[in-house]
Write a protein that binds this DNA or RNA. Structure first.
Lengths: 159, 159
DNA sequence: GTGAGATAGTTGCATTTGAGACTATATCAA
DNA sequence: TTGATATAGTCTCAAATGCAACTATCTCAC
């Protein structure tokens, strides 16, 4: 009889690990800043990419459902963390960018988030990290999760 | 100004990867067998561990919330995939095990699931897989996700 | 024994989420 | 132009989920 040990089943292990890491990280932005996961993803996308970009671009980058991103953007607008301007060339879309408040929040959060990442990875040697990075890269490419697939939203949204 | 590239941020990468793998796998059991993720976890736990065990044991193994497991068990009972008997020694708990139907389902599903896993890992060499396995193991131990923490439910539930 | 605290499992409630319909706009071909 | 199709973003609805309260039972100290 064929058997499957969940503890050795890679999909399960990765899922469980992801959930645990998520929980460890989200306490940082949820408790301290009142930001939830979708909001954090929007913030991180806009903050990294200094140019304005569309909600659709965030959807493509983060692989998060568009209704989820839409709601996150609404919340961030209400909190004045993000602002948006209609694109004159294409009036279906809006160019999103961080406000001064949003930028300040981003700059305050990032070092904390990076520190948390380091805490989580602290059980791995430099060589291990390289190796993990390589494995993730291969899996991402194989599953079509690569950056190359992401449209250059800036060209449209930016000007 | 400190920046953080989501695409290089390990927690995000692992999360996105997990979501993608989950989606790829769940189509197998959801579309074909009408089983959802929590139900699959119960099924996999009971099928692997041939002895009866408690819902709490499944909770510990899978790190899934007990209300989620409770509902999954209810569904599996209704579908006659799982059966349970009250433990005479401790009448708070029930010993869960697969029915004949459940065992047949398990045996049909497992090879498919293993094949899916192999498909996903097919982008990795044997050496890569060992390496990935080692990385996951280190992270799991570091985050206290290790099997060692799982109680031997069989002693109580089994007899 | 008795009472305090722990544990297994269920359930109600509020939140989150994804699917998909919907509006408005853009593109492109005839 | 016009009509067909595609896309950005919002909204409604239903399903999934976690939390916390609850019941029933067990354990253990006194």
């Amino acid at each position: 009889m064929p058997k499957l040990d969940l503890f050795q089943f890679t999909p399960f292990r990765i899922n469980r690990l992801a959930a645990e890491i998520s929980a460890a990280l989200s306490s940082e932005y949820r408790d301290r800043y009142g930001i939830d996961i979708p909001e954090w993803r929007v913030l991180a996308t806009l903050g990294f990419r200094q140019e304005p970009c569309t909600a659709q671009y965030v959807v493509d980058c983060t692989r998060t459902h568009k209704s989820t991103i839409s709601r996150a953007v609404t919340n961030l607008l209400r909190q004045r963390i993000v602002e948006r301007v209609e694109n004159e060339q294409d009036r279906r879309e809006f160019a999103l960018q961080l406000t001064a408040k949003g930028t300040a929040l981003y700059e305050e959060m990032i070092p904390r988030m990076l520190r948390r990442e380091q805490d989580i990875l602290s059980c791995l040697s430099a060589r291990d990290r390289k190796s993990l990075d390589a494995m993730l890269g291969k899996l991402e490419r194989s599953l079509d999760l690569v950056q190359g697939k992401i449209p250059q939203a800036s060209r449209k949204a930016g000007n």
